[in-house]
Design a protein around this nucleic acid. Structure first.
Length: 423
RNA sequence: GGUGAGGUGCCUGAGUGGCCGAAAGGAACGGUUUGCUAAACCGUCGUACGGGUUAAACUGUACCGAGGGUUCGAAUCCCUCCCUCACCGCCA
């Protein structure tokens, strides 16, 4: 969430930036400031009254110690009277703080100045495109047909044991999946990321910390008995590893990678966009998360983009990089690059990675801070990106690499997969 | 799930109603000194939100797992919840 002092000092800028995100509820900005004014006023009143109570209480202690009972009694009444006045102030203060927080979390992150204006995905800017779109042989088919033909993925079985959007990978399909996870992790580790294998469920505080709660509650699976949420991405547990921590500047940057399944309810999706592996309720992903010094985050964002890019190149998949426009970016992001690979049989681009700088939006929620020497703690910047989401990579490999005699496995995966081809 | 013991600052750990934001030791940081990776000594060593200031200084309030309660006054007493540890039960 945004920092209140920043909003107070840069109101015009905030409004201008929110407009780029097509954010309409701009009155919330004034509300935040008004609530903060109210909060300060109540805080002052409360603190001053409480200070009187505290000093009187100390005196009572002294008087009682000296055996001056009557004087003590008199003071006791005075304190009780003050406390009577304090109660409603305290109540109002708590209510105001809650209202302020509730209002504050409704404000999205401010888009960076690099974010193009626009409302829909059509307004995203193609930064660059790389790789050749393969010409498929006659009779080439989409991945869901290939999955059946080579017995790689069974969607019906997943339907039976769980529901739609929960595919069962089998045989070479399962093995290819595992090979990719291993390869992606190794690739990230070689680039200096530390591997983590976090829990797949998180508590409420974690879900709030990265911005899933309160507004995206319906998109997560919720284990109500224990009040745990199934993670929609490893970003949630990895970022929250550092929740409420104060790091030293020399600890930065923190570079993490992790493989996890991801669970998304994605209510309301339908049609051919969700066919096969295109959109699932459970899928595998290898994620990158970095915690950086605020001065370095955009440099690091570029570095992460380059990293994901080279990973895609190593898989020899045609891809393009989009800089998301204000209207298409996520609530919490300041700048996002989406990576799409071309699915030759479906003849469309599929998003396989999203690399974002959240600046201090998440760290303010999570209270992840760092100190320079003996300086004051300040919020650091968080970034994350997929490297990569597996199902659509799988779809593209199957489709783009299909030949009359089988599916060619990208060279970099062959050692992990144990073969050069699926036949 | 049952029983018992606990949750205090970066760590260890003292503190059972006012003198406690909290002893002591360690770590870390800064400095002095010693001719060399060490030791000794001195100092610093929480966070948040207010007030105040050009900025500081200074100052108020809150925080000893979380939330309530008792009391003039709570780390200390009571209640609820969460968590950790030990043993038992169950179990991959």
């Amino acid at each position: 969430m945004l920092q209140v002092p920043f909003i107070r000092q840069n109101k015009e800028l905030v409004l201008e930036r929110l407009a780029v995100k097509n954010f309409k509820d701009t009155h919330l900005v004034d509300e935040v400031i008004a609530l903060d004014d109210k909060r300060k006023k109540l805080t002052l009143e409360y603190d001053e009254t409480q200070a009187q109570v505290n000093s009187l209480s100390k005196e009572i202690g002294k008087l009682m110690g000296q055996g001056k009972k009557e004087e003590g009694e008199a003071m006791r009444n005075q304190v009780n009277e003050l406390k009577g006045r304090l109660a409603p102030v305290n109540e109002a203060l708590n209510a105001t703080e809650k209202e302020l927080l509730d209002t504050l979390v409704k404000l999205p992150n401010l888009p960076s100045t690099l974010v193009p204006e626009g409302k829909t995905p059509e307004d995203n800017v193609v930064v660059r495109q790389h790789g050749e779109i393969p010409a498929l042989h006659a009779g080439a088919v989409p991945h869901w047909d290939l999955a059946k033909k080579y017995d790689l993925i069974d969607f019906e079985l997943g339907n039976k044991i769980t529901g739609s959007g929960f595919p069962v990978y089998k045989n070479k399909g399962a093995r290819l999946q595992r090979a990719m996870i291993q390869y992606f992790l190794d690739y990230n580790i070689n680039a200096g990321y530390t591997e983590f294998a976090p829990p797949y469920m998180v508590n409420e505080a974690s879900a709030f910390g990265t911005g899933q709660l309160p507004d995206k509650e319906g998109q997560m699976y919720h284990a109500t008995e224990d009040n745990f949420y199934l993670i929609p991405t490893a970003e949630v547990p990895l970022t929250n590893l550092f929740r409420d921590e104060i790091l030293k500047d020399t600890d930065l940057p923190v570079r993490m990678t992790g493989y996890t399944p991801c669970f998304r309810r994605e209510a309301g999706s339908y049609g051919k966009d969700v066919r096969g592996l295109n959109r699932l309720h459970q899928f595998d992903k290898v994620e990158l998360v970095q915690l950086t010094h605020p001065d370095k985050s955009y440099e690091v964002l570029d570095e992460m983009v380059a990293h994901v890019e080279s990973l895609l190149q190593s898989l020899q998949l045609p891809y393009r990089i989009l800089r998301l426009c204000g209207g298409d970016m996520s609530f919490t992001s300041a700048l996002t690059y989406d990576f799409e690979v071309y699915s030759a049989a479906q003849q469309k681009w599929l998003e396989v990675s999203s690399v974002s700088n959240f600046e201090s939006y998440q760290s303010n929620r999570c209270k992840i801070r760092f100190k320079e020497g003996n300086g004051k703690p300040q919020l650091l910047h968080t970034l994350n990106g997929s490297s990569l989401a597996l199902p659509r990579i799988m779809a593209c490999i199957l489709e783009n690499n299909q030949h009359e005699d089988g599916i060619a496995i990208p060279a970099v995966l062959q050692a992990y997969f144990g073969a050069g081809k699926i036949q």
